[in-house]
Each structure stands twice: as C-alpha cells, then as structure tokens.
Computed example of a mutant assay.
Amino acid sequence: MRDRFTTNRRTRVARALTATAAVAALAVAPLAAPAPATAAVSRADLALRWAPVHYQDVDATGAHALGGQSDYLTAVDFDGNLNGRDNWDRAGASGTSLAAHAYYSVVETSTHWYITYLFFHPRDWTDHPFFETEHENDGEGVLFAIERDGSPYGVLRGAVTVAHSDFYSYTPAGSTWTSGRESVDGTLQFQTSPHDSFAHPVTAQEAQGHGLKAYPQYAINGDGLVYYPSTVAETPSSGDDRDVRYQLVDIFAAGGLWAQRANANLFAGLGTFAGDTSGDCGSGTWSCSANSANAPWGWDDGNDVPARGELASDPAKVSAEYFTVPAGLARGYSYNPYAGAAAALAEAARTAAPTVD
C-alpha cells in the first residue's frame, strides 16, 4: 500500500548517464542559472525560469512498478542508447540512469513566448488485470504561453497540459486570459523553489499512466516525488523524495530530439516514439500496445480544433482557440524550428492514425 509519508530530506545518489555516442547525441551543456533581471534573457533562461515545480505520484505496488521506479522521470536515453524498443525491458536495469531530466522547446512571436515541456517515462504501466493497456515509453507535458510585456521574463498567461489523449487548459490567478472555444479547466498555482528565487507554476502527474494536469488536479497519494527545475539532474533517493532537482534539455539542440525525429530506432513515425510489445509489457493486464507514446510534435486531442502536433508547432493557434485573449496575439513566428517541417506535420495529421498516450 502507498501510505508512507515523510518530509525528511535524503542524501541523493548522482548517477551519470552511460558515456556512449548515442547518449552524446542528446547531451547538451547544463543550463546556466536564470540571468539577472538587468541582463538579456536567452531561451534557455526563459525555459529554466518558467519550468514547473512538478509533483509525481509514485505507486510501488504491482509487478511492473519496479518498486516505484516506473514512475520516475528520466531521459529518453536513460539506458545509454537511442533505441525506443528496449526501454521497457531496460527500465530499472543495472547500468541505467534514473537521473531526472525534462525536455523543452521555445518558439516566439512578436507578442509571446511559448514554452513546451516534455516529461518522459520508459513505461506506461498498470497493475489492473482488466480493461487497461500498457505500452513502452510515455511522453506527456505542458505548454506555457508567456506574454512579452517588456519585463525580462514576461508574464505567464495560460497553460495547456497533456493527459493521455486529452488537453486541459489553465490560467493563473489574475490572468487577463479567459475561456475561449474550450472552457478553462482550473487555476494554475505557483510555488517558490528552494533552489532559486522564482515562483514557478506547479504541475503534477499521476502514477502508472502519467497523465499531466495542473496541481492539485493530480496530486501525490502516499509516496511521491517533488521535482524542482535546476541546472543539475538528481536521482531520487527513494520513491518518496520531496526534493529532487531535474535538468532541462533543449529539444532543438544539435543532435537533440528534434534532430532525431527521423531516427527509426527512436521514432516509429513523425512524433511517435517507437515501442514494441516485448518482455512482460501487458502480462497480467488487458494488453500491451506498440508505438503508443508521443513527442510534443505528435500530441493530439482529437476532439479539439488544433491538429496533431500543433500544441508544440503552432502554439499561437492553440492559444487563440483555447483562450480569449483581450490584447490579441501575433500569429506569425519570429523563431519556430518546428515550422521547417510544417508540411510534413500537416500531412501526418491528415493521413496518420493518431496514437494514444
């Protein structure tokens, strides 16, 4: 049963990623701390300043929980390679890393910055024997829309989270944004980090399936982890560690996830992580599905107007659909590396059956 709760700080064990060429392909230099308010702000600065304090519920029960480690955040190449089809089997194996990472991308218009965050787990799992499926790899996340108001970091106006095949929208208290075509689902809370001087938005993921919403619409139930954005990657000391720092990795970095989008070992299609049904995935449960997790350019809420992938690739469109923005927002991008593949993304949205995360 998940009924333990402790506030004692634990000594963390740093676990370095295996030094292989595959790992180096995704590696980037650690992000610097956010710049002082008087200095120019880089995209990395923006990503670190607005990265969420992230609550992760942990379930240590069940054959596929790995004692809770199946709910730990980690890097896509946690096992030292860029093969998406061995992640289920290598989760928790000797020589792999559970150091906490999250991925981000920043795109810009003249009026807003849009920052997308991806949180990765090697397993989407369940301990229920009926009516629920498992799959290899799991990628869910959140979009933050930041108004460029003349201050160094802007002001956060709205958020859209990814929980499986549904999107949920939120606004902070006092935001000028209100419901648009979709109703706002709640208030985005903020929490001060002990590792910097900023109040960060707060998000949370459920155990097992890892749907992501604004805290406390998901919350820790017994054991759990609280992740804080930082310049280093820490490994939780246990499944009930309330102070774990995670390191951000730029999706657009040289050799990064976006550069790897045509790597058939990592992606089964545009925006779809490769994943098979080997090992014990699905054993004792309803089934195990293949190729069922998505990167940000594959996220989709099939019931809503924005097309597959547009949460990341056209966030101004998503924001205009989900929210009423009194001051308006620019639709043309001054920086958007996703746009170079806009035709392929649009074609994939028209022709490919969406996968379910």
Rank of each mutant, 00 (worst) to 15 (best):
T126D: 15
L156H: 01
R123W: 07
Y153E: 04
G150H: 04
R123Y: 03
N137G: 03
E132C: 12
V155N: 05
D124E: 07
P122F: 10
I146G: 09
L156I: 06
D127E: 15
T126N: 15
H135W: 05
A145H: 06
V142N: 00
L143P: 07
T133E: 11
F131E: 15
P152A: 08
D149A: 08
E147W: 07
D138C: 13
L156P: 00
S151F: 00
V155S: 12
H112W: 10
T126R: 14
D149P: 09
E134S: 02
Y114I: 10
E140C: 04
G154Q: 08
E140V: 02
I146S: 10
I115M: 07
H112S: 01
V142S: 03
T126S: 15
A145P: 01
P129R: 15
F144H: 07
Y114E: 09
H121C: 09
T126K: 15
D127W: 14
R123L: 13
F120H: 01
E140G: 06
L118D: 02
R123G: 06
D138I: 00
T133Y: 04
I115T: 02
E132A: 13
F120R: 04
L143C: 05
T133M: 13
D127T: 10
F130N: 13
S151G: 05
R157F: 01
G139W: 03
D124R: 09
T116K: 06
H128W: 14
D149M: 08
D124N: 14
Y117P: 04
I115P: 02
W113R: 12
